[in-house]
Design a protein around this nucleic acid. Structure first.
Lengths: 203, 203
DNA sequence: CAATCGCCATACTGTGTCGTATGGAAGATG
DNA sequence: CATCTTCCATACGACACAGTATGGCGATTG
């Protein structure tokens, strides 16, 4: 029997797929919370509901967390770290392929792909509309992302101002599309999206 | 119970500004609800809270509405009608000034202007993520808007496919920007926004 | 003037949720 | 083996909210 974490002895930790862990740690709660957040938003993220999805009662929850806000803060921090790491990985590219990579960034954020990720994204952004802490996290993530793609546009040969403009346009478009319901607007949506991507990336 | 039409006498209706009406009708409740919706989202739209903002108790509410869902449906319908009328008015323009009007559309939806309208917009769109009726309303509004600006792009000389692409890009960008926190991304945000608008509208 | 009606207040039930307090089971430790 | 620690269940109190029932007040009407 192997221990996933290194800290506590903690015997029965079956991280094997399918076998539900005998014990829950803080990390398990956070991951489950992000799942619930994606489906129901912050409003649907309640202690007893979350406990039910974990197969335990809230007695467990209040052992790992001080209160509900403690979980929410942890969720926010987890999301921030994940997004920073993700954008760093996504915008790392060898010289000469910056425009290809920018197209890739647009594609990865497509609503069709990465469905769950976009649900979390929208849930957090709606959360940020009523919570200052969430707003600060969103701002940090936005600025980091904008900066990463800005560099790509610069390395692709654009001026500073134009690069900033394109970077902002890129993310605005990506998030905006995920917010709209336009499935029946056209029969060849992929063509439309391709044109949009070109408009954002091309000189 | 029937829908409040014009038939009832209804004496003391002081729609005069400043003087709070002695009586509330269905319309007053809906307007107050939209205000609360803008600030707190659908989750914050509760009967007793809304009643408090109206200065009455929920006894009044349940006289004008069957239940909470009755109000929510009315709010959705009201929003839909308002958006349709608004976009019709905004995209009506004499030949030759289509591009100017498209710039105007982008500006009107700017987060700085029309702050409350955008709050409602985002609240409804988040609502649509968990409610099928709201999603249908958002889809109808989106398709109508996309169609209106598409015509403008066509009349500005673009091909059908390009016009559709630009129309989608326009709204995606507008809503996406309202979703992001980029205030400290640049010192000359107006310049950036101007470049973006040009990228969307210009040939 | 009496009866009615439109509009609202009050009181009540039921449910969902937060947070706490306490007990209990199972492994770790002496 | 006895005890302690870790993790969770159960029970409880407090509150917010949806919806109902009923009573009351002013205005209208006959």
């Amino acid at each position: 029997m192997e221990t996933a974490a290194v800290k506590t002895p903690n015997t029965a930790k079956r991280t094997a797929r399918g076998a539900p862990k005998a014990q829950l740690d803080r990390n398990d709660w956070i991951e489950a919370a992000i799942d619930v957040l994606a489906k129901g938003g912050v409003g649907g993220l309640r202690v007893e509901v979350l406990a039910k999805t974990c197969g335990v009662t809230k007695g467990s929850f209040y052992w790992h967390f001080k209160d509900r806000q403690d979980l929410l803060s942890a969720v926010l921090e987890r999301w921030r770290e994940g997004r920073i790491r993700d954008i760093e990985k996504t915008t790392a590219v060898e010289p000469g392929k910056e425009r290809d990579q920018l197209h890739y960034v647009i594609e990865v954020y497509g609503a069709s792909r990465n469905r769950k990720g976009m649900s979390i994204e929208l849930a957090v952004r709606d959360w940020a509309r009523h919570d200052a802490v969430a707003a600060a996290v969103v701002e940090a993530v936005d600025l980091y992302r904008l900066e990463c793609t800005r560099k790509l546009f610069v390395r692709a040969g654009m001026t500073e101002a134009e690069a900033k403009s394109r970077s902002l346009l890129l993310y605005a478009c990506v998030f905006g599309l995920s917010l709209m319901h336009y499935d029946s607007f056209d029969q060849q949506l992929p063509d439309l999206k391709q044109r949009i991507a070109e408009r954002i990336v091309s000189a």
